[in-house]
Design a protein around this nucleic acid. Structure first.
Lengths: 356, 356
DNA sequence: GCGAGGATTGTGAGCGGTCACAACACGGCC
DNA sequence: GGCCGTGTTGTGACCGCTCACAATCCTCGC
């Protein structure tokens, strides 16, 4: 079945009813019988405007349907209420949710938000420069390698904040940033599994956001720490990718090993793939194997078995990142301490005690 | 387990290395010993500039790190290479994927993209005016009521294109728009189910994008037509929502009725919820009941049973919508005929013949 | 050797706002 | 009545770029 898409041109070629160009501040001034500066005062509500004058101007504004030209305002004032989000992905749950939270906060503050997707193909510096040229500030989503690289290259004179996977180890971060403590969360999840009686926990990793630094990926790190603290040698992590396919691939290998009874996954998509692989291999969840995801994507509670996972407050992350940026843009704005809901282990059906 | 989020301020309070304000066209002119207009000519590559002059100017541009100020350019030229997407959602798969396709096309064409989320709370007209004030054009994602309403209210003098659920019945649409023929797709999916031997097919609907118009929702319409053509009286559609929870709620009711053996869902999330409800009711899929989704979200093939669904080319939809807008913005750009991949029924594990 | 005409370059104005400052009005004070 | 301070309004310049047009330079043909 192939049915093609359709287009409609939108009626007869654009007779365009009212093609008047929009009223300017001077048009309003003329209509109200005042100078353009007075109009400017009214729209910025300066205190010193006689009440009656103000009323006249406001009427003129109303009747002409005047709206201040954002471009001209930006040029003259140097203020651009704009955030551009740099991200390598817009569809994956973590990214999309962060973006959503950010957009909401930005909208509430009267900012408009732009999105610019990062790809390995195009020149990072050029991309950043273009985004920065829009005025306003940047928020970089640095969950992955590409985003982290972009963050490193933002020129120091452009306002910028970031949502990252983890703080850069040791050195003070180059930029204001927010993150959730998923190292601790991963550790707790692993301990939970251990507490259930599983002799060890295997880890299906998401790609690291930093180079090959040892101390990198916090989720992996938390998992490792928990195992070591329990006196267990961490098995080699697997996984190479973000999506369910990658999870499936990793899961196939793990499923073949009868000693594998507990698997922690770097995100819910991976977990979904793992679940699938386990199913194909005839191993039951949670009977034979327990699986934990990460992120708590909306559908995770509806799959069968419902996925035990770590809920992360991506929306809050996006909101906070915006606040951090706003703090740089508006001198009199003091960003609130980020109030993220902490990571939370959501126990559902994919985990169970080891029936030894 | 509650672990809080973290922030880092980004080192000592912004010593801001090179706080020079960026070079302007006149700075470059001075450095190159020419007039600012010549610089303007170079950056717009006008033909009549002596080769040697051009070279000198280019060197000056390079050494000063000049980049044309986008705001000033927009103000002076009246050209804003900007698309603002109006959408009520950014996370649901159909929306996110459309946005993704659009962003990609826009980026390739040198446009920057803005996103503005529509909510029932804030004033539609004001929102639209704000978005339009950014210059550039609008693309409205009109899959739902809110989006469709927004589309209707975009003033006729602002360039705008739309991705919609279906063409407005009868009357020529107010705006250039793209859509996929999901009516036909729904019909084919229903016929497939009927062909499998199911006496009837139940439908779990997504919320309609138009008012209470009879001819509205194309997916529902296709389903209805297929049933009627087969001489079956369509059972009342259920469902009120977009997400898995809504699917689950609808699914519970359906699961209780032993006569229900085939269910078509308005999207994959609903299908997921339905699957879950069926599972809870102890009815097997596809043994007892067959389920078909709509959209083919990335995870649908990894759930168990893998979901039979209708794949829709949202990315193509986004790309085409952008093309349509671009056609209005650039007089010499002729948008290509949209080349969407047609809807396609992807048969997986959630459907099977009726074992009568 | 000189004028025509195209190639090159420069000047002025303006996009639609803002800022800084000057000008004018008014009332109260001595 | 003159002076001052405050409230109110208007003028000029400018943000960084584009447009339209004028000015200058060449090169060519006769």
């Amino acid at each position: 079945m192939v049915v093609t898409g359709h287009t409609s041109s939108g009626g007869p070629a654009a007779p365009q009813g009212s093609q008047h160009k929009p009223a300017s501040i001077r048009d309003v001034a003329q209509a109200a019988g005042v100078s353009y500066q007075t109009v400017s005062r009214v729209i910025n509500d300066h205190p010193n405007v006689k009440e009656e004058t103000r009323r006249r101007v406001e009427e003129a504004i109303e009747s002409l349907g005047f709206r201040r030209n954002a471009t001209a305002f930006a040029l003259a004032s140097g203020v651009t209420k704009t955030v551009t989000v740099l991200t390598s992905n817009t569809v994956l749950y973590g990214y999309a949710a962060t973006l959503q939270g950010l957009e909401e906060a930005a909208r509430a503050a009267g900012y408009s938000v732009g999105v610019r997707v990062l790809t390995p193909e195009d020149d990072l510096d050029r991309t950043i420069a273009t985004a920065a040229a829009a005025g306003g500030g940047l928020v970089v989503i640095g969950f992955d390698r590409l985003g982290a690289a972009a963050l490193d290259r933002v020129p120091s004179n452009v306002p910028c904040a970031a949502a990252v996977e983890a703080p850069p180890p040791g050195r003070t971060p180059p930029r204001p940033a927010v993150w959730v403590d998923d190292r601790t969360a991963a550790r707790a999840a692993t301990e939970y599994l251990l507490g259930l009686g599983h002799p060890t926990v295997h880890y299906v990793a998401i790609p690291a956001s930093t180079g090959s630094r040892r101390s990198a990926a916090p989720r992996a790190e938390g998992w490792r720490q928990a195992l070591i603290a329990a006196g267990v040698t961490p098995p080699p992590p697997t996984g190479k990718g973000w999506d369910a396919q990658a999870g499936y691939d990793a899961g196939r290998k793990l499923a073949g090993d009868p000693d594998v009874t507990a698997i922690l996954c770097g995100n819910d998509d991976l977990a979904l793939g793992v679940l699938r692989a386990l199913h194909h291999a005839g191993r039951s969840v949670p009977g034979d194997v327990s699986v934990i995801g990460f992120d708590d994507a909306p559908h995770s509670q509806f799959i069968t078995p419902a996925l035990t996972t770590v809920r992360l407050d991506f929306q809050g992350l996006g909101r906070s990142a915006f606040g951090l940026l706003r703090g740089q843009l508006e001198s009199d704005y003091q960003p609130p301490e980020p109030t993220l809901v902490g990571p939370q282990l959501v126990r559902r059906e994919s985990t169970g005690s080891r029936e030894a």
